[in-house]
Every structure is written in structure tokens, then in C-alpha cells.
Write a protein that binds this DNA or RNA. Structure first.
Ligand SMILES: [Mn+2]
Ligand SMILES: [Mn+2]
Ligand SMILES: [Zn+2]
Ligand SMILES: [Zn+2]
Lengths: 145, 145
DNA sequence: CTTCTAAATGAAAATGATTATCATTATCAT
DNA sequence: ATGATAATGATAATCATTTTCATTTAGAAG
């Protein structure tokens, strides 16, 4: 749990107090193999600390995102999930069967952006790329069944 | 307005009735230079036909999406916008200043997908790419002021 | 042109996610 | 140990979207 200590230090460095709900929420985020929705974090959190409130989950996630410790993952319908952030530029690869989420890097979209800028006259400032697929475990599950 | 006729034909071919609200909503979609949120379509629709309801906007959009005539554009916060769909595989380029949205094609992400599949063991089935930038008009506005 | 029926509509309420309020609690610097 | 105030949690508010249901209407049939 050094990762947990690291997050706590960053919170302290930023003038935040270390509270029981925050510990619980951070632990949940760090131990989850997949991205979670706020209500999922809430449900898991209540198992550890029944007094915890959904509003505190939202507020803690807001703070953690502000500090760059977590990132949002977008879904078709609109509800967001969150997961620990990874340093630097990267994108998500989400398993559509079980939700397990992985990051990848090394996308080189520079050539595409240049082409698009030339063709459209727009200046491209940002991009948003997310991949969907089947993780190794779910591929096997499907084979066996 | 041949585009409008085309959409109406497709609705008819699929057993849908052609109603006044539907005409209004389709006209708004086809005449907008940018993607619209459901409430924006609702407000514009009321100017033409004050009796129209927001629920009908949602239902009509659902139907149009089902028929592949419109597509959703995702936003950071979660609320969706819609705009007429373009044939074939393409992605959106959204102006962050005025909202004007354009499509582009010719992304060749095959090499990236292969690399990701090798590195992660996932099978990549789908992808989601959206670019953000500044449109030509807004670039000029910024220069002048 | 009427008649008929299922599709479509709109008002109102329900739902689900997120945010705001505010009195109470608890962290942590002193 | 004490106090200032950050954080919490119960509650209510807000916002987008969906459901319900009684009423209207498009368009097929006669
Ligand atoms: Mn990238
Ligand atoms: Mn593509
Ligand atoms: Zn999986
Ligand atoms: Zn613009």
C-alpha cells in the first residue's frame, strides 16, 4: 500500500485533511481492476465504512481528479467511470464484456492531425481516443463457456 | 430541401408516420451548422411549432438514430449532442469556441490497433476518436478581436 | 370523403446522476 | 487540550432522460 501513502502525501501537500472516507475511497480505487462508477465506489465504501455518504464520494473524486490522481472514462450513455490516472499521455482500452480497463501509449496521430488540419482549416488542439474490445480473460471465457 | 424529402422517405419506408413535430425536428437538424443538444432542438422547434414537446424531441431523435440518420457527439460532461450522420466510417472534429462540427475520414489506425493488441492481449473491436480544435472562423475572430 | 386503428403526441410524474445547502463533526496546526 | 475551519452527511434541488397514460392524428381501408 505504498501507493495509498503516496496519494495521502499529495493530499496533505495540497492542504487537504486525511479522513476516514477519503482513505476508504482511495483504497477502493487503487484495488479495483477496472474503472468504477461513483455509485459503485459508494456501495463498496459502505461495506468498509457504513456511514459514508454518496456526496462525499463525489467530492472526493472531484478533489482527486483536480490533483491529477484519477481520470474519467467516458461511456456511451453519459455516466462516467473513474480510475487511477497514469503519468503522461495515454488512452484507455475498455473490455466491453467485464469492464476491465487498461491503458496504452504510443499512439502517433501527428500525421492524421496534419492531414485533418490541411483538409478542414481547423487547428487541432486536443484529441480523445478510446478503444473497446475483449480482454484476454473474456476471450477465454467465450471459448470455453 | 431534397435532404428533408430523403429522410421522410426513409421514415415512411420504415413504417413511420410523418407528423408535424417530426418535420420540424428534421428541418432543424438539417439546417444547423453545428451539433445540437435535445433542449436546443426543443427551443428552436417551439419557435416553429409552439405545441411541440420535449419528450417528442427525444423520441424522434431515438428513431432517427435507429435509422442511422443522425449520430451522437460526446461531450466532457455527459450531455449529448446530435447531428446528421455521414455515410461510412468517420469521426468528428469539434470547434471548442463555437461548437461548429465537421467530420473527417481517412484515419488509418490499423497499425496502432495491431500494436495495442500485441501489447495487451485484448482484441480491439471498436474505437472512438474525436478531435477538438478551433475552426477557421474562430481563428480569425481571435486574431482580430 | 368517412371510418377505423395503431402510431404518435404531450402533460405530468418518475427516475437516475450530479450538485447545492447547511448544521454537525472531526482534522490538525497551535 | 483548544479552536479555526475543512470535511462530512442528511436533505433537498437541479438537470437530463425515461415512463405512463389519456388524447390526438396519420394514413390505410372501405
Ligand atoms: Mn493520444
Ligand atoms: Mn476511426
Ligand atoms: Zn474482460
Ligand atoms: Zn468555431
Amino acid at each position: 500500500m505504498e501507493q495509498l501513502q503516496h496519494w495521502i502525501e499529495i493530499l496533505e501537500e495540497n492542504g487537504c485533511r486525511i479522513t476516514s472516507p477519503r482513505r476508504v475511497i482511495i483504497e477502493i480505487l487503487l484495488n479495483s481492476p477496472r474503472a468504477l462508477e461513483p455509485t459503485e465506489i459508494y456501495d463498496l465504501g459502505r461495506e468498509m465504512n457504513p456511514g459514508i455518504g454518496l456526496v462525499t464520494v463525489y467530492r472526493t473524486l472531484e478533489k482527486l481528479e483536480e490533483l491529477g490522481l484519477i481520470q474519467r472514462i467516458h461511456q456511451e450513455d453519459g455516466c462516467h467511470m473513474v480510475m487511477p490516472a497514469v503519468e503522461g499521455h495515454q488512452h484507455y482500452l475498455v473490455c466491453t464484456a467485464c469492464g476491465k480497463t487498461t491503458v496504452f501509449r504510443g499512439d502517433d496521430l501527428g500525421a492524421l492531425f496534419s492531414r485533418v488540419e490541411t483538409n478542414t482549416g481547423y487547428q487541432v488542439n486536443d484529441h480523445w481516443l478510446q478503444l473497446f474490445g475483449t480482454c484476454p480473460d473474456c476471450k477465454n471465457d467465450h471459448k470455453n463457456g
